[in-house]
Amino acid sequence: MGTEDIEIESRNLNLWYGSAQALKDVSIPIEKNRVTALIGPSGCGKSTFIRCINRMNDLIKGCRITGKVLFEGRDVYEKDVDVVVLRKRIGMVFQKPNPFPMSIYDNIAYGPRIHGTQAKRELDEVVEDSLKAAALWDEVGGILDKPALDLSGGQQQRLCIARTLAVKPDVILFDEPCSALDPISTARIEDLINVLKHDYTIIIVTHNMQQAARVSDHTAFFLLGEMIEFGETKQIFERPVEKSTENYITGRFG
């Protein structure tokens, strides 16, 4: 991969929660308009890693970071980086669907409104486009004023994706987006990720190795805070270099 295609890159990233080190010297290049999957057993640091990219770890008291996370060549931890702009450009979809207790429409319009879109017509357009892009329009197009919490879990998660798309990010971070969903909803989200990667750079944390194999172009394997192996998904799953990667993929632990 050519360096001009690298959108995000972590360099020697270390992270501590208090005195416990959660990330050890992690360096990963993330390619533009590709899906990069992060796999590994629970507590291995993969969620912590993606939360470094949009600086969601800032919220955690006692969290300390060294090293760099470059986004378009610039360290997101530099002093003059505007976190609001950063998070607008790097969206995030969480493990549990977390729509706001508002109408479907207001959920989607929430982001654009923050960032200055007020005109009704413009908002209508963003809402429709985002819901279409998240493959939810056909189901909810007629009930936009209904509470978002009335939707099913899978619909709620697609709503959260639509809500993220509505602020027009460049990167979307998925933090185990299907772990609370049934297989059919999961399949729909995976299809969606396959479509979205044409327009967005995607990083997905997943427990589900089949999912990583199905949706991603690159895969990074994490273990105990270290990034053990990174490469083309096909290579990682068929010919892993590291013994521990092979053990994990073949289901010997985790």
Binding site: R87, G91, F94, I114, T164, V167
Partner: peptide, 8 residues
């Protein structure tokens, strides 16, 4: 978290 992640 959802709100902050949207850039609020």
């Amino acid at each position: 978290q959802a709100s902050l992640a949207l850039g609020a």
